[in-house]
Design a protein around this nucleic acid. Structure first.
Lengths: 237, 237
DNA sequence: TGTACATCAGTGAACGCGCGTTCACTGATGTAC
DNA sequence: TGTACATCAGTGAACGCGCGTTCACTGATGTAC
């Protein structure tokens, strides 16, 4: 089987499949993940509701594909930002990744909510989602590793050494990372990661009313201030 | 009308109303906000579905009440933690509030998701939710204000002064706060707030798999490390 | 190049379920005299 | 204290809508000889 579709059937299949996914994404925006409906998608595409089952095994499978696509789309956006900056400019890379995450989230709020919002009740994400899910965070890890390779002390910026229990808690992630990255650096990195997602979520989910200004640029400016401080917190400011 | 119900009718009404709210909370856990169903609640309480309308005007009104209750419940938990520590122990108060937020979220994950997770599609929160929503964050603001009154420089900890645009973005919240609190302090406070909610959300929404350990205490330990660093970031470490 | 067969896309009806909300009604509880 | 009336809780049927999924079927596209 070639990766590029050949026959008319194969081409049509690929096209309709992506139309179904697109329609699904549009429905996420208006009705949320819980309201994702195969019948509604079929209606939108002008086909019988049963026809959708030629392309998608079930509602849950469609949800899984949308989740994987969302992670991949975010991951690609982050990687593009990362790759656009030279390796020796760590603050630049860091800023680019943070901005890419926020920009992507603002452009695709429904998909952001799908992957970082409240979990869909009754749905359990299969293992296929794990790989795509770590694409963005891997970029931050890479930056931390580069910083470590240059001997940058993250510990100082994030204030003090980890307790024994604190280090033990990080064992799963410590095991996966290059040995040069200290527990303190990971602690700092995770905190920045949580701060980044927390900030984006607060902005996207409407918690900034009466806090951050509504003028154009206000939220960008706030985010920019966050980014410079996060960079400082992991020692690459 | 007395605030304490007197007649049998009034007592029954208060009781059944709170039973409805309780059942609603239970349903949030299993089906999420989007799946909240008046019929299901009625079934659980053994009454006709139409009877629920004696107590609640509509599904949306029930959702609003659950949201307000959640904010109030979280606010009360935070205030209890805050009040349990003396005013002169700012780090202690800060720690207590952070812990209270996480503990409450772990104990009431469904309600946490309701207020800080993805917004419910098609639902717009009425103005009544604004007041309760700010109860917790007010505590952190109070701590910042106390710190400012003691001349603690938050700016240093959060690295550098705000840009002009950064300060302008904070105008809405600057206007509400005591004049001693600088823009830099608020910037730091907001970042800690976002970090706190981001951390709790990541933990609660299942993003810590293969990152933080699963042993008892691992997540507590990670969170504790976060708290000490946040405190340092707002200058009260 | 033409034919026979297999594969696949799409249909429409059906099953069995759920939901929010309204409405006319019964019967119990509360209140005013 | 007793009676007449008003208020309110709760019922059950109904309206009109939605959903996921299955199934027997038709007709078009692809493939092997």
């Amino acid at each position: 089987m070639p990766s590029v579709p050949r026959t008319a059937r194969e081409r049509a299949r690929a096209e309709i499949t992506s139309e179904i996914l697109d329609a699904g994404r549009r429905h996420l925006a208006t009705d949320g993940a819980a309201g994702l409906s195969l019948r509604a998608i079929a209606r939108e595409l002008g086909m019988a509701s049963s026809a959708v089952y030629r392309y998608v095994a079930s509602r849950d499978e469609l949800l899984t594909r949308l989740i994987i696509d969302a992670y991949d789309s975010l991951g690609a956006a982050g990687e593009a930002g990362y790759a656009a900056v030279g390796r020796d400019d760590l603050p630049g890379r860091f800023t680019a990744v943070c901005r890419a995450v926020r920009d992507w989230a603002l452009a695709n709020p429904n998909e952001y909510a799908l992957i970082y919002g409240s979990p869909v009740p009754g749905y359990v994400a299969p293992a296929d989602t794990i790989g795509p899910a770590s694409r963005v965070s891997n970029l931050l890890v890479q930056i931390l590793a580069d910083a470590a390779a240059r001997g940058i002390e993250v510990a100082a910026a994030t204030r003090g050494e980890l307790s024994q229990a604190g280090r033990a808690a990080l064992e799963p992630v410590l095991g996966v990372l290059p040995p040069g990255v200290t527990g303190e650096a990971i602690q700092g990195g995770l905190m920045v990661w949580a701060g980044l997602l927390g900030t984006v979520s607060l902005e996207l989910f409407g918690q900034f009313h009466n806090v951050i200004g509504e003028n154009p640029g206000d939220r960008d400016a706030f985010f920019a201030e966050c980014v410079t401080r996060w960079a400082a917190q992991v020692g690459i400011g």
